[in-house]
């Protein structure tokens, strides 16, 4: 579990602790303990459970979110609900004399107020999520599964693409449409890694991923395939269109002035791309096999086309 958000919420934890201790203090001070025979254990255990669960919810909200309006509102709503539950629970063990009977009366008040506040908070959360979704454009389609995210680039991994590809193959078969798969491979990524280290390599992957996303259309999906290779699904697309987009991506990356750490010197990178049209007849593993074969052939052609000078140069780099 990643607890890095906790440090932003120290004050909220303090408030929670204060609320809980003052409630326990007031009720135990004003009330009198019930006889053991008077206790309804069944009820007490049930209420203790609910009280604890609301605490767990508060905890998960706080470790999942940075500070801000929505977090504060969620916290207030849940804390109020928790107060009601806690009063209800203590109620099982204490009874109040007539001058402090108000305690029993107000115990159900915080919960509804808390729930209204939470509803507002959830609505805001929805709006927040909508804006995050807009940022996720091109990185997901129809379906979300955070366990398939590639932690280096923030894109989804090959597994997610395989699911989407299977879906698209069925879809293409039914609607008699074709779609295009594209691969983007960074040239000489190994020698880049050797020269500048893995951390710089990861940064390069991340920035390349961002550039690919920027050059895609709304309907396209990009994932990290493996290592320095990216895979892109372009639904309902012709090869010509895909090729144009591929050229855009190649140019964009060729013009990325990548900086190593604090150095101002630019390292220009090049990528190889290949596209393939699919019409829903092939099985998804075959599609991937063929697509990668095509990448191999493309790279081979590029190596052979390079002029002798470039060849020597490329060997020096490698």
């Amino acid at each position: 579990m990643n607890l890095s958000f906790l440090k932003f919420h120290r004050h909220l934890f303090l408030i929670l602790l204060l609320v809980i201790t003052s409630i326990v203090a007031i009720t135990t001070h004003l009330g009198t303990l019930k006889e053991a025979s008077e206790l309804d254990w069944f009820d007490a255990v049930g209420e203790a459970g609910i009280t604890l669960v609301t605490l767990v919810w508060i905890f998960f909200i706080l470790i999942s979110r940075p500070s801000g309006k929505v977090t504060n509102l969620l916290f207030v709503g849940l804390t109020l609900t928790h107060v009601s539950m806690l009063l209800d629970f203590i109620d099982e063990f204490y009874f109040y004399t007539s001058d402090s009977a108000w305690l029993g009366t107000i115990e159900s008040l915080p919960a509804p107020v808390g729930m209204i506040i939470m509803s507002v908070a959830l609505y805001w959360w929805h709006q927040e999520q909508m804006s995050i979704n807009a940022q996720l454009r091109n990185t997901e389609r129809y379906y979300r599964d955070h366990s398939l995210t590639d932690f280096v680039t923030g894109l989804y991994s090959a597994k997610y693409m395989k699911n989407q590809l299977q879906r698209e193959i069925i879809n293409a078969g039914i609607h008699q449409q074709s779609f295009v798969m594209m691969l983007i491979d960074i040239r000489k990524f190994d020698s880049f890694n050797r020269k500048y280290g893995d951390q710089q390599g990861d940064t390069l992957l991340r920035e390349t991923a961002q550039l690919i996303l920027m050059n895609l259309r709304d309907e396209d999906l990009a994932c990290r395939y493996a290592s320095d290779r990216f895979i892109i699904l372009m639904p309902n697309t012709s090869v010509q269109t895909a090729q144009t987009v591929a050229t855009h991506i190649e140019q964009a990356i060729a013009n990325l002035a990548f900086k190593i750490g604090n150095s101002a010197a630019a390292q220009y990178q090049h990528v190889t791309s290949c596209v393939m049209e699919c019409n829903g007849e092939d099985e998804y593993l075959n599609v991937l096999d063929k697509l990668n074969d095509r990448m191999l052939a493309t790279k081979h052609d590029i190596n052979n086309q390079a002029s002798p000078n470039q060849l020597i140069h490329s060997k020096d780099v490698a």
Partner: peptide, 24 residues
């Protein structure tokens, strides 16, 4: 400077992370 064509046979079942084999 480039990968040469080789045929690879392996004694175990196809893995579900075939992309790693493709790329590497």
């Amino acid at each position: 400077g480039e990968i040469i064509p080789i045929a690879i046979k392996l004694p175990y079942k196809e893995v579900d992370y075939i992309e790693q084999y493709h790329v590497n």
